[in-house]
């Protein structure tokens, strides 16, 4: 007769084999900057939903890239799915294989799914999240869509939990709507740290954390992407910076002043 101890041991062993257990991996991921990671402590949650909002329509590329940065951090070595709405490709350009490679991800590991509308975007995203085959799923939508509701975001969050993958929804040219996201970001482009001879530098973002379920207060940082480390990094303090970054909570940070100047 097996003893109670043996049964308990078997139970723990079975539990460790079950799919939802991450097998000792931390359930968090880090952005790679000590200052930001300390603020977000214990870091954004894996296997849940994160919303990334482009500050203006012209910031869609920055929002996509920031989301890919987060996804790269969250995915580790697993494959990644990027569901892309065709309209977003027409407005801000289609995804570019060479660009992904130059960004620092291996394009072979990114599955690109092109869909026509927001409903198909959510359906394909949910399917990918539930499959359990991928580390993270990015969904890039464009414009207002009734399908992007609170219910839809709840479904995505549940699918992410069920399939042990992290969901990132990028939205451009739309108002922010209620969502079940763990963290919500508003992202825009920032001036890069110029290299010698006035050459544009690494990808740079102004990323504002607008909401966090962990209770962190809204805050804003200027980040750059270091593709060799596959991590975000602090921009080097160079005097040549032409645009000052708004202090969190200041009028400049609140207002939509950073949008495009329309001239005609």
């Amino acid at each position: 007769m097996p003893s109670t101890y043996q049964i308990a041991q078997l139970k723990t062993r079975l539990a460790s084999l079950s799919r939802h257990d991450t097998g000792g991996e931390p359930e968090r991921f880090l952005l790679g900057i000590d200052r930001v990671d300390a603020y977000l402590d214990p870091g954004p949650c894996l296997f849940c939903l994160h919303d990334i909002h482009a500050r203006t329509a012209a910031d869609a590329v920055a929002a996509n890239a920031f989301a890919l940065g987060l996804a790269t951090r969250a995915t580790r070595e697993r494959p990644m799915v990027w569901v892309f709405q065709n309209l977003a490709g027409q407005e801000a350009g289609g995804l570019n294989g060479s660009g992904l490679h130059e960004w620092g991800v291996s394009p072979d590991r990114v599955l690109i799914v092109r869909v026509r509308d927001a409903t198909a975007l959510l359906a394909a995203g949910e399917e990918a999240l539930k499959s359990g085959a991928v580390g993270s799923v990015l969904m890039s939508g464009w414009g207002e869509a009734r399908a992007m509701s609170l219910t839809a975001s709840r479904r995505l969050a549940l699918a992410a939990r069920a399939g042990s993958s992290t969901a990132f929804v990028v939205r451009a040219a739309s108002m922010s709507a209620p969502s079940a996201a763990e963290t919500r970001w508003s992202v825009g482009s920032a001036l890069s740290t110029g290299l010698e001879a006035g050459v544009p530098g690494r990808p740079a973002f102004v990323a504002a954390l607008t909401r966090s379920r962990q209770g962190a207060a809204p805050a804003q940082w200027t980040l750059e992407w270091d593709r060799e480390r596959r991590a975000f990094c602090e921009p080097a303090p160079v005097s040549g910076r032409r645009l000052s970054v708004p202090v969190p909570g200041s009028a400049a940070a609140r207002g939509p002043a950073a949008g495009l100047r329309r001239t005609g």
């Binding site: 570019n96 960004w103 593709r227």
Partner: peptide, 16 residues
């Protein structure tokens, strides 16, 4: 894929 120069920023656009 062609090799990347570790020193330079991305030389090809993200979206095209």
């Amino acid at each position: 894929w062609p090799a990347r120069d570790p020193e330079s920023p991305p030389l090809r656009p993200f979206q095209m």
